[in-house]
Design a protein around this nucleic acid. Structure first.
Lengths: 108, 108
DNA sequence: TGACTATGTGATGCCCTACTCACGTAGTTG
DNA sequence: CAACTACGTGAGTAGGGCATCACATAGTCA
């Protein structure tokens, strides 16, 4: 595999990695309804502000989110609508697995 | 956030995590052309067999891949076509970022 | 049966990530 | 200015992921 292709996979992996955590998935889901400040996000996902802040910075860095300041608050929002399609695909996979599990169990 | 919702996010994160690595992305891409044995996968992605074997088992465990034995070889394949849509979405995000970067640079 | 091939796996070391605490900073409000 | 709020971040720690080596296993073929 040539270096350029490898580099491309690294970039893709960075994006996927940005979503590969329960809290981060919950944040993305929450933001799909519209922009939110850190304190509301923190309360919604049930994690400490400092922790949420770090997760947000990871997603910010990898280009999944963007933010703006509004007085004291910092408002985060999804940067691309693509990321939601992304999650739909994950749901598809999960449903597919569930159906398969059920098919196996029905033979009992 | 109630425990069931949280559990659901954990399941989703496990699937996303299964794809969140350059080698694993390369493997998924390679398998989109059809099933392959470990040795061919290993050669294609340019990683040691033992390492590839571990990556494969991770994706197998999280339901992204499936496998069958054929003589000495073990043949791996994608379990759900959904996972390819998944990667298309990642490409969308990447392209989106690239356009944005280019838009910024064009102002030089 | 003995040599060989393809694959999986325990053990190890290293590095990265996630979480928490404590503190600093920026902005608001009285 | 003083108190307060919202947020980010350095330090420290625990845990997990990844790559590698060495070895075990299963199957093939002469």
């Amino acid at each position: 595999m040539d270096p350029q292709t490898q580099r491309l996979y690294e970039l893709k992996a960075q994006i996927v990695q940005a979503a590969a955590h329960p809290i981060r998935l919950a944040i993305i889901d929450f933001l799909s309804d519209g922009e939110q400040c850190v304190c509301d996000i923190s309360e919604h996902v049930g994690a400490k502000r400092s922790n949420v802040s770090r997760h947000l910075s990871v997603m910010l860095k990898s280009g999944v989110l963007e933010c703006r300041k509004d007085g004291l608050k910092v408002i985060y929002s999804l940067k691309t609508p693509c990321i939601l399609k992304f999650l739909d695909c994950v749901n598809d996979v999960l449903r597919h697995q569930a159906r398969q599990s059920q098919a196996v169990l029905s033979r009992l």
